[in-house]
Nucleic acid binder design. Sequence first.
DNA 1: CCCCCCCC
Length: 380
Amino acid sequence: MDEIIEIYKKQKLSGIIKQEDFLERVGEKVNQMGGLCDNRTAAMLVAHDLGAGDTGEGTGSEVHKVADIAPGTGNVRLIARVMTVFPAKEFNRNDGTIGRVANLIVADETGSIRLTLWDDKADLVKTGDISVGQTFQISGYVKEGYSGVEVNVGNNGVLCETDEKVEASVASTKISDIKNGMGDLNLRARVLDIADIRTFNRKDGSTGRVTNITVGDDTGKIRVTLWDEKTDLLSGLRINDSIEIINAYARENNFSQQVEVQVGNRTIVKKTDKEIAYSENFTPISDIIPGESYSIKGSVSGIGERRDFTRDDGTENSVSNIYVSDDTGRIRIALWGEHAGLIDEVDIDTEVEIIDAFSKSGFNDEIELSAGNRTRIVVL
DNA sequence: CCCCCCCC
């Protein structure tokens, strides 16, 4: 209580508010923050709310925007939403005490920045009092860290949850820059294809759900894998929607050897209004070599028959074939399953786009494309 | 952590 009164005096608040009212408001603040604020922090915040100019470290009246924070900014106050929480770590100080440190990524409408929390503030991560999606009033000091400018919040800093609504904007990675192993990945992209949801059994006996979407931006496209409850997002998605994927990670798929974006527990996927440019990269037919995925564009130059067959494993399927020609050559397309019906929709000379078909050396050692369930076909 | 590249 003494320290609250000390702040009351130090901030020369007697001309603004009665001491007892100040104490009451501090109490309200503590309750409002759900126990996340101590008395001293709450007192500084109330003082700030009352327009006090110097409430200690970083609590000057100006609220900084993330984009304005530079290495020389000094103490800052910001209001930002937690985008990522990294686990807290302990370390030994030279004086024999155990220090704690934790990192967050927070964002406001101007960008995102890393917060480094020390000791008591880092403990809030350990106790689960800080999680993705919460918005905080933050006061700390700016420092150049390992991965750029960051805000350090120590014992004199402030980290208080607030109800204030903050639009979070995070720098996005271009698809062509995505590398295996990347974390903390944010993308803005256009939905190009949406697959069905599949269920599978885990080794522990539980049932999982998984699905994929293909997304593109002006630098390329990538397969996105959504797990379990994240597959529910599909019901709200349509092809050509613009989406933001926040806090995803990139992993090479053991099966395809391609890097994919993984949408896990902590990843946020949401639609945006922003138009995202994407143009399909069509390969000239004569450049196709076996063992890759390609998109081609051309005119139908041959139409075969539909055939129903039984696979070795007993499942039924259908296949039909068309030929497609462009300026550089002609190729056979095997149309599997639902694509087999395409032969009824096209005539000779119909323009088509065959997107994401897999090339292989087929019948008579000729290169052909397989249009399977990862392939999208557009009839123009 | 899951999956196709199958037919004649």
